[in-house]
Design a binder for these strands. Structure first.
Lengths: 104, 104
DNA sequence: TTATTATATGAAAATATTATCATATATTTG
DNA sequence: CAAATATATGATAATATTTTCATATAATAA
């Protein structure tokens, strides 16, 4: 067994964690949310819904999911819940993809 | 409508393409394949199966899927099909995720 | 030519993700 | 307190992805 193959086994858990985060990002709506919050941090659910022309409940589900995975954070002010990027590093994923010359 | 919001609409297609590539990568087995090929380029299907302790048909499906999306390339030599990275840029996605402090 | 080996393929089953809908909760306002 | 507004929740439906299994194909060897 080569060193590389041994490595793969050791890193199995690492790949599972990485895939978990990547999955949270690998969706057009969620990428749009990330870019939106990158440009204008701390938007309410309604503002995000309007920007993305998407339904409140669906956006809420996405936001909560991304918060759960540590990508977003939120803070409440009165009736509104303001979401912002917790992990700015994820914006680099988009930049990274844009440099790819994959079949698109 | 703010400039950011106008942007989101224009970029809808961009997000779809990016999500398409991210989805191809957002899977533990496929991440493992990428790292394996990054370290030792041009492995046969069987070698990959052994390294990942995974079934031939399943690995074949993953490999063909990643090739279809422009991430891998393959070349045949006799009975063997050797796969390698076509788009090395995707290895940066893994590095990028590792720098994240998301809830994992 | 038959057997063997490596890989691909395709259908079906299993599982996971995403979207929709109705409604609940919480906050503010009149 | 009742009405209005913003967001969350949870069940279900719709859809997509992943796995499995049986088998096909193609190359080589006996």
């Amino acid at each position: 067994m080569t060193a590389e193959i041994a490595n793969i086994k050791i890193n199995k858990e690492k790949f599972e964690k990485a895939a978990y985060i990547l999955k949270a990002v690998a969706h057009p709506t969620r990428l749009a949310i990330i870019q939106l919050l990158e440009q204008e941090d701390g938007l309410s659910v309604n503002e995000i819904c309007e920007a993305l022309e998407s339904e409140q409940s669906l956006i809420s589900h996405h936001l909560i999911n991304m918060k759960l995975r540590g990508i977003l954070k939120s803070n409440k002010d009165g009736l509104n819940m303001y979401y912002s990027l917790k992990e700015h590093e994820v914006t680099k994923l988009l930049a990274c993809i844009e440099n790819c010359n994959c079949n698109m």
